[in-house]
Amino acid sequence: MNFFKRFQGRTLVLFTLAVTICFTAIACGGGGGSQTQASIGIPPELVVDYIHSVAEADRTAYTKHVVNRLKTLEGKPKEAGVVPAEATEAWQQANGVPLPAQMFRLGAELASEKGTFTYGLISPWNINDSQAPKGEFESAGMQQVVDTGEPYKAEREIAGQKYYSAIYPDKAIAEACVTCHNEHPIHKERYPDKVFKLNDVMGGVVINLPLT
């Protein structure tokens, strides 16, 4: 458990560092326009790009350098595995480690508790009901991301608060991503004709940045 706390803590520190560097660079910029730049602040579309870059890099590193090295994935042996441990959805009961999507969600929960922005996963082929697209923005945006493979960004209002929101394509970066989804009983039941391949768009990463 200490490993996961350290991993989540490092993710939050990287988020904070990225945003702080951006604001510092603008506030400390030379020239007569520096005060105007500082008062305007960094564009929200750039902030969400930074947040996404850090979140995606952390999950990719976890997938490639932790999950891919384990000997077992959801009860099945991995040929290239060298670490005697299992990545499984029931990681707490099985004394294993979380799947990449679960690790991503653990970090998102920690960030939402201590930060001012939120992020999470959604998918039109969701296994977890909480990760289904919600509302017009997520439904329309997720469809556009699937169709184009490009991010979808816009301002919107949530519970009376204005946000700058973005949906980024969530792609299958490793065989573990494809195997877990394609072989999951809920996926087979709900989406029997959907078979993911490496680099397919499997869903989206949603980031909500408050405009205050």
Score class of each variant (00 low, 15 high):
49 D>M: 06
87 A>W: 08
43 P>E: 08
71 K>A: 13
163 Y>V: 09
135 G>A: 11
37 Q>R: 15
170 D>E: 09
102 Q>G: 03
30 G>C: 10
102 Q>L: 04
33 G>E: 14
50 Y>D: 03
73 L>I: 11
68 N>E: 15
86 E>G: 05
39 S>W: 10
8 Q>A: 13
67 V>T: 05
96 G>M: 06
159 A>F: 10
168 Y>R: 05
19 V>K: 09
34 S>P: 00
81 G>R: 11
62 Y>T: 00
32 G>D: 07
186 I>E: 10
51 I>V: 15
112 S>Q: 10
212 T>D: 12
10 R>L: 14
7 F>G: 00
19 V>N: 04
87 A>R: 05
95 N>S: 15
195 V>L: 04
62 Y>D: 00
171 K>Y: 01
6 R>K: 14
194 K>T: 10
185 P>I: 08
26 I>T: 14
151 P>A: 11
203 G>K: 03
96 G>C: 06
15 F>V: 03
102 Q>S: 04
96 G>H: 03
2 N>L: 13
153 K>L: 13
175 E>S: 06
57 A>K: 14
18 A>H: 06
22 C>A: 15
136 E>G: 01
89 E>K: 12
11 T>F: 14
178 V>Q: 00
120 G>P: 01
39 S>M: 13
26 I>L: 12
147 D>A: 15
5 K>E: 13
7 F>N: 01
31 G>I: 10
23 F>M: 05
174 A>S: 07
147 D>N: 15
101 A>D: 07
204 G>V: 08
147 D>S: 15
136 E>K: 11
198 L>S: 08
211 L>R: 05
42 I>D: 00
11 T>L: 15
17 L>S: 10
202 M>V: 07
96 G>K: 05
72 T>G: 00
112 S>P: 00
91 W>A: 00
30 G>D: 09
100 P>K: 02
58 D>W: 06
212 T>E: 13
96 G>L: 06
181 H>A: 12
134 K>V: 13
8 Q>M: 12
111 A>V: 11
43 P>Q: 05
10 R>K: 14
64 K>L: 03
16 T>D: 11
4 F>H: 09
16 T>S: 14
56 E>I: 11
63 T>E: 04
206 V>N: 03
140 A>L: 15
111 A>S: 09
42 I>A: 10
103 M>D: 01
51 I>K: 00
26 I>C: 04
103 M>H: 06
119 Y>V: 06
64 K>M: 02
202 M>S: 02
18 A>V: 05
127 I>C: 00
193 D>S: 13
32 G>F: 12
27 A>Q: 10
173 I>H: 00
180 C>I: 15
187 H>G: 01
51 I>P: 01
123 S>Y: 03
149 G>F: 11
68 N>K: 04
10 R>C: 08
156 R>C: 12
32 G>P: 01
169 P>D: 09
190 R>T: 08
39 S>Q: 14
205 V>C: 04
199 N>K: 13
32 G>A: 10
124 P>D: 12
70 L>F: 01
5 K>D: 14
161 Q>S: 06
205 V>K: 04
76 K>F: 11
58 D>P: 00
112 S>M: 06
165 S>F: 11
63 T>A: 14
76 K>D: 05
83 V>E: 03
168 Y>K: 06
181 H>Q: 12
29 G>A: 15
36 T>Q: 12
